[in-house]
Design a protein around this nucleic acid. Structure first.
Lengths: 255, 255
DNA sequence: CTAGGCTAGTTGTATAGACAGGTTTGGGGT
DNA sequence: ACCCCAAACCTGTCTATACAACTAGCCTAG
């Protein structure tokens, strides 16, 4: 029953078989053919219906579990988890990406864009020598034309020496880093504090002094662990909220 | 060079081989034999040195990558990631666990503990029928004897019908759920807002009205996705901060 | 000197088969 | 009616092998 879910495979595609299977299953989830609590087709079932080896089917199922949309129980099967994955938790997103995802129209107003010596805080976060130069970029972020937050990014000049000439501060910093310099940010550590808007911040954000704001401090890393960006942001708490997904550590390797 | 890292395997142990290898490698990380940026032994190397198949070695390495302590590059090898995993990011922790982790002395003062009908908000979050009963628990949380936050937990009565008689509201709710009822929370969705303390909240928390606070709303789930707890908390922002680790989605399946 | 190709080393994908250990179901014996 | 065991089914682990795709270094032909 329910083999409707598995689409035929394209054996000549460059897309790996396990990934095609994964897509089929995710599509089944999206369409509602697979509901919360349902039994996902077993490894043997996928394997025989699509003519792939069991290990390949297994790899597809494993990737669903890694995503968090399913869980396996030895002897019983693999079940659809109750948690939907509509929201992408734990993602580093640029402001532009994040707003578009929420269906809002992002706009950016540059406040300052220059080269400066790293202050102590930034130098420590970015592992820079004393006095090393950074590109400093202050921007006001707006969604649907009303202010959301103020961002202050600093990027080591060494990573992109000609950026001051080439970069348009109204566009996406992440895209420029990726496309012009091959700098791929894969991870970030972020601390969040709550505070009150100063008079100056309030003016920029269009809220009274003393309004509640989020204070983000974020360090972005490349895949080898080298820090590439230090960002301090102040966001309006009345228009912004944080969504987190937390997991609980499992004791060793019990099922 | 450096094969010191791999301990001999115990082929009669109940511990899977891939897990023994994983432990060896993690031990190498902990001891400093494997440093940030180092090349992890290749699949072939592990396979030939320990006499396991390449797929088994691969499974061990894959699990390190899943942990975030290493990353693989096709054609080059697997490297130790620069980011240490000392801090457990994004874990569901009880207040007690979290404070102990930070080296503070946690204390809890119960404010209210009773059975009530679920309000609309809690009923929706916990997937309860209209009017279904919940256990409602309001607690003041203190660290080193000074107030940190107010927590309001609600747990479906159906999950633990005799808890009102048995549970001591000064102790850990999570431990009671786990040990008395076999209820294991594995996942939680949380939204965080920033706001200002009301007069009543300020009195309990020992801060002036209008002080910045975090507002947490958390839904905790069991592994099948069934919701088990709905928590609304108000925490002092001057004594509490959030730490997050974010990852960036890789474009489809490129390396 | 350089461009191109060859090769050794590495991870990614896929196959086929085996056994272990868990759950569920149903049938047979008491 | 009840209990126990076998069979069917499922995931977890492991082996052995093959080829593809990518990297880096070396060497040769031009």
């Amino acid at each position: 029953m329910g083999q409707v879910i598995l689409e035929a495979l394209d054996r000549h595609s460059v897309v790996p078989l396990y990934y095609q299977i994964r897509r089929s299953l995710l599509e089944g989830l999206r369409s509602g053919a697979l509901k919360s609590g349902d039994l996902v087709p077993s490894e043997e079932e996928i394997s025989s219906q699509l003519g792939v080896s069991r290990m390949t089917a297994r790899q597809a199922i494993k990737s669903l579990c890694d995503l968090g949309v399913a869980y396996s129980l030895r002897g019983k099967g693999t079940f659809v988890s109750g948690m939907k994955l509509e929201k992408d938790f734990r993602q580093v997103l640029s402001f532009t990406e994040e707003m578009r995802k929420r269906g809002w129209r992002p706009r950016t107003k540059p406040l300052a864009f220059n080269i400066a010596e790293a202050d102590n805080e930034a130098a420590r976060a970015l592992h820079l020598a004393r006095g090393e130069k950074v590109i400093s970029l202050r921007r006001l972020r707006l969604a649907n034309a009303s202010p959301m937050g103020i961002e202050w990014s600093r990027v080591p000049l060494r990573l992109c020496p000609d950026m001051p000439q080439k970069f348009d501060p109204r566009t996406s910093l992440y895209r420029a880093l990726a496309e012009q310099y091959g700098i791929q940010i894969v991870l970030a550590d972020e601390t969040v504090e709550a505070g009150l808007a100063s008079a100056a911040e309030g003016r920029l954000l269009g809220v009274p002094k003393g309004s509640p704001v989020f204070l983000f401090t974020r360090i972005c890393y490349l895949h080898e662990g080298r820090p590439a960006e230090y960002v301090k942001s102040t966001y309006r708490a009345d228009r912004y909220k944080i969504v987190n997904r937390l997991t609980r550590a499992k004791g060793e390797w019990r099922n």
